[in-house]
């Protein structure tokens, strides 16, 4: 397993030497065939599941930026997702804007909301911040639940699907191309951010705020930036969710349970590990969907899993694999040295 992963990464690295976008392009082209494959083997319903996986990948990757890179504990991320979804849905429904206009506007609004959520982070740390963001996220949901104009108890129905010219993207497998593209771009950009000076500033803030500020990093600015970037991801995911084929939004999509599954994705994959977050998103979404029959026990299982993950595997799947790779390299190096001396 580990050797497969190391071989795989080295193969990808050699591809990336040809052109840095080449591996992404190949992955994209391969994924274009996924809906056909899924429909042929499992059925069309699972394409819908794959769509939702892509949305949660976007959310998890976005949460990873603020949480994993920048070390700010936010648990109100689902509120941003809700803002993105509701804004885009209302713009499309009440003002007849096409998806290509309502989604960017929704992202803009979510950005602003992200700024508001991020503002407490300038002065607060850790648990304080967690509760402040939880309060904000939950207020968003309560607002949606009690205000009739935002859908309240009936939800928003008949949200128009995105169109290209005369063509309406309303089947699951065509929508997959849209969300998959968004997810791939999202993952790519999170790597770009991680490897840029911004990403290094985030990591410096995560490790030690005081040391970071002494090194000349504008801490409040970068904290807010992290929140805004993650809000862009959440807004995009929300807008895509609102226009997804059934075209139906309800505030039950944004409850604490959703927040817990989102947190579980990031924790399972390993906080701060991008691919870990992606794997976590896929695993949790699929398990969540497949265990729908045991709906009443789901929060219990998810909660307990989260507790045990934190206690026994704090670095998640990604962390464990990373450690195994490091260990393997270490052993190989030592074996070489031993051969040389004997």
């Amino acid at each position: 397993m580990i050797s497969f992963i190391t071989n795989f990464t080295s193969a990808i690295e050699s591809l990336a030497k040809v052109h840095r976008l080449l591996p992404w392009l190949i992955a994209y082209v391969l994924l274009l065939f996924l809906p056909n494959l899924i429909t042929a083997t499992f059925g069309e319903y699972y394409v819908d599941l794959a769509n939702r996986c892509c949305l949660f990948i976007l959310l998890a990757v976005g949460l990873n930026i603020v949480k994993g890179f920048c070390g700010q504990v936010t648990v109100g991320h689902i509120g941003l997702y809700a803002i993105g979804a509701v804004t885009s849905a209302l713009l499309a429904q009440n003002y007849g804007l096409p998806f290509w206009l309502s989604a960017p506007l929704a992202i803009l609004v979510t950005c602003f909301a992200g700024l508001v959520v991020g503002l407490p982070s300038v002065r607060l740390e850790g648990a304080y911040l967690a509760l402040a963001t939880l309060g904000l996220g939950e207020s968003v949901r309560i607002m949606i639940a009690v205000t009739p104009a935002l859908g309240s108890s009936t939800g928003i129905m008949m949200i128009p699907a995105p169109t290209i010219g005369d063509y309406v993207i309303e089947s699951f497998d065509h929508y997959f191309y849209l969300v998959m593209t968004a997810a791939i771009i999202g993952i790519y950009f999170s790597f770009v951010i991680l490897n840029s000076s911004t990403g290094r500033a985030f990591k410096a803030i995560r490790e030690d705020v005081i040391a970071a500020s002494v090194s000349g990093i504008n801490v409040p600015f970068y904290k807010l930036l992290a929140f805004v970037i993650s809000a862009i991801y959440a807004g995009l995911a929300g807008a895509l969710f609102a226009h997804m084929p059934p075209g139906y939004l309800h505030h039950n999509n944004f409850t604490v349970i959703e927040m817990v599954t989102l947190l579980l994705m990031v924790v399972l994959g390993g906080i701060g590990n991008i691919w870990g977050g992606v794997v976590g998103a896929i695993v949790v979404t699929v398990i969540y969907d497949q265990t729908k029959d045991y709906y009443f026990y789901q929060p219990l299982i998810f909660g307990i899993t989260m507790v045990f993950l934190v206690v026994f595997m704090p670095r998640g799947i990604g962390g464990v694999i990373e450690q195994a790779i490091v260990k393997r390299k270490f052993i190989e190096k030592h074996e070489e040295q031993n051969l040389g001396t004997s």
Binding site: G126, V260, L263, Q298, L300, F302, M306, V307, P314
Partner: peptide, 27 residues
Amino acid sequence: GGYTVAGMGMIICGFGMSVALMNVAFL
């Protein structure tokens, strides 16, 4: 403790526990 990754773990742990306890009471 502190607010490093371990401190974040504590918050996530409490969050998970809260959901699990709520579900136990529900059951």
